[in-house]
Amino acid sequence: MTEPLVQVENLSRYYQNNLAISHLSFNLKAGEVLGFLGPNGAGKSTTMQVISGNLAPSEGEVSIAGHDIIEAPRAAKAHLGYLPEHPPVYREASVDEYLKFCARLHRIAPGQRAAALDRVKQQCGLTTVGRRLIGNLSKGYQQRVGIAQAIIHDPPVVILDEPTVGLDPIQIREIRELIRSLGSERSVILSTHILSEVQATCDRVQIIRAGELIYHASTESLNQGHEQSYTIGLRQAPGLEQLIALAGVDHAEKLGSDRFRVFFSPESNPDALVATSVEQDWGLYELVPEQQSLEDLFIELTHNEETNAQ
């Protein structure tokens, strides 16, 4: 399958006269996880609503598995699972009832419904709450029910709008693993404003600001070719110049009396720093790599544009 599963071409969307998204084009192949990043109000949710057929595009085309969402909505939607920003759950129904309804809605054959139900409950960690009313579940569990709903019919394209909102850290890790496993054979589009989430789960990242695509790269290339920074703590701290003089160190800055941020040039590591610390008894007690590159990039891109706009 070399044909892209999701193809978005020149997509624009207006709310009355407000431009929400402007001439977006991208595509997504099977087995890719695409992260959609952007500040609030950048048009992430609008894009997802348009791709899922909840909003009609003002201009441009969206096709899913080769079916146009406007021309052939039924075929396109059959290949799609969508979790909106607010999980679309019926509070008065139990988890099982709700998921059974979703299975019927997605035309899963009666004989396969029970198996599909068991599978998604397993995947989303819902096995213990099947009989409980959704309205009585915590926000995190409601979110999981929302994710279960999006994958119950095993769609080749899954769109998740901020899937980890309201989850606790353990649940977030589980959901990220789930997304990664989904992404192994499917296309997943994921929107978030949590940057580490993109780095942890996505193959590609797109940054969108004020409706425009301003950055597009694979997360791998994002992590490479950037200088790596570490925060370090030293009990008997030497001067800043001594740190900068170390092999591989590009530059450094002082964070406190005994804490520093040290930037290493690409392809080097803090060996020299540790060795020198042992030799000269600096008392190294902290050495934490900072995975800041995406956050820096994000702030740089979104902030610069904002100041330019003003």
Binding site: N54, P84, P88, Y90
Partner: peptide, 9 residues
């Protein structure tokens, strides 16, 4: 919850 129905085929 309408989007559940609208996103379904």
């Amino acid at each position: 919850t309408l989007s559940l129905l609208v996103s379904a085929p």
